[in-house]
Amino acid sequence: MSIFDLTGAVALVTGAQGGIGSATVRALAQAGARVIATDMADEAQVAGADGYRRLDVTDEAAWADLAAHIDDRYGRLDIVVNNAGISVTNSIAGTPLAEFRKCFAINVEGVFLGTKAMEPLLARSGADRQGGSSIVNLSSVGGLRGAPFMSAYCASKGAVKLFTKSTALEYAALKLPIRANSVHPGGIDTNMMDTIYARYVETGLFADEATARATVSAGHAIGRMGTADEIAGGIVYLCSPAASFVTGSELVIDGGMTAK
């Protein structure tokens, strides 16, 4: 059996219709897990998913309902990937308070609520699984360093990083069999990045989207943008027995961007 094998595991992925989310669903399923995909659409087909549920990650009652559904249908939960998130690309002066709060509600409170709601299931399932259960929270290189016109996003992703570390230490102190780690992608070729390029042009940071893309790409030592599948591979690792000694860590998958 491969040390990356997830046969028998049940996984939950939020934001599953996005680029990284959908790639993660496929990768976890290919490793053998049964994957529950969630997003904001009422109904959706996500390749590789064992089931789909609509979920507003800012709604605590919705999280409770989802936990009850997973317990009733699967009887366990081994993996939670808190991937749902939004970007805000705006000047500090030009960012409405409501927009700043929405960014934190989805990117940070969603991670907190998911962790809180799924803790009992993860603790129960982790007791009979090598390395225990696994929480993977999507942060960003923006959670490690700042960026112009990205203050709300970077602040929220920095919060995810430290929330994840605190989660890992708390569960270790409580002797709960749950590991928690964050993933920090660099520039990934997704629809979210296309939106960011467009906003960079609108803010005047770049003359056009082609220049924005070329500049961001050149910021990676490897000389290109990453793919969603490359992030999903790292997530599978953190969820697998191969990472049984990994908790409270930051997995940076950024093509060398932060090495500069």
Rank of each mutant, 00 (worst) to 15 (best):
S166A: 15
L28K: 04
S133A: 15
G75F: 09
Q17T: 15
A168K: 11
V141L: 10
V160H: 10
L55C: 01
S151D: 10
E109R: 03
I3Y: 03
L66R: 04
L28G: 02
I79G: 01
D5A: 12
E209M: 07
Q30C: 06
T190C: 08
R76Q: 14
Y171L: 12
D128E: 13
Q45C: 08
L138V: 14
L55D: 00
G126N: 04
A37E: 02
V57Q: 00
T190A: 07
V108M: 09
G15E: 11
D5G: 01
A155W: 08
K165L: 13
I106K: 01
A221R: 09
T14A: 04
K102F: 02
R213T: 04
M1C: 05
D71F: 05
D59H: 10
A243H: 11
F245D: 11
M150F: 13
T211S: 15
F245R: 07
A259F: 06
L77W: 00
A23Q: 06
I135P: 03
K260S: 15
A117L: 08
T167E: 13
I79D: 02
P148Q: 05
A117M: 09
T89Y: 03
A180W: 07
T190V: 03
R54G: 04
I188T: 15
A41W: 01
S140P: 10
L113P: 08
I86N: 02
D78I: 01
G187P: 11
E170R: 14
V160G: 13
A210R: 11
P185Y: 12
V111Q: 08
S166C: 14
F100Q: 09
R73H: 07
E119S: 10
L121D: 01
A214S: 14
L205R: 14
N82K: 00
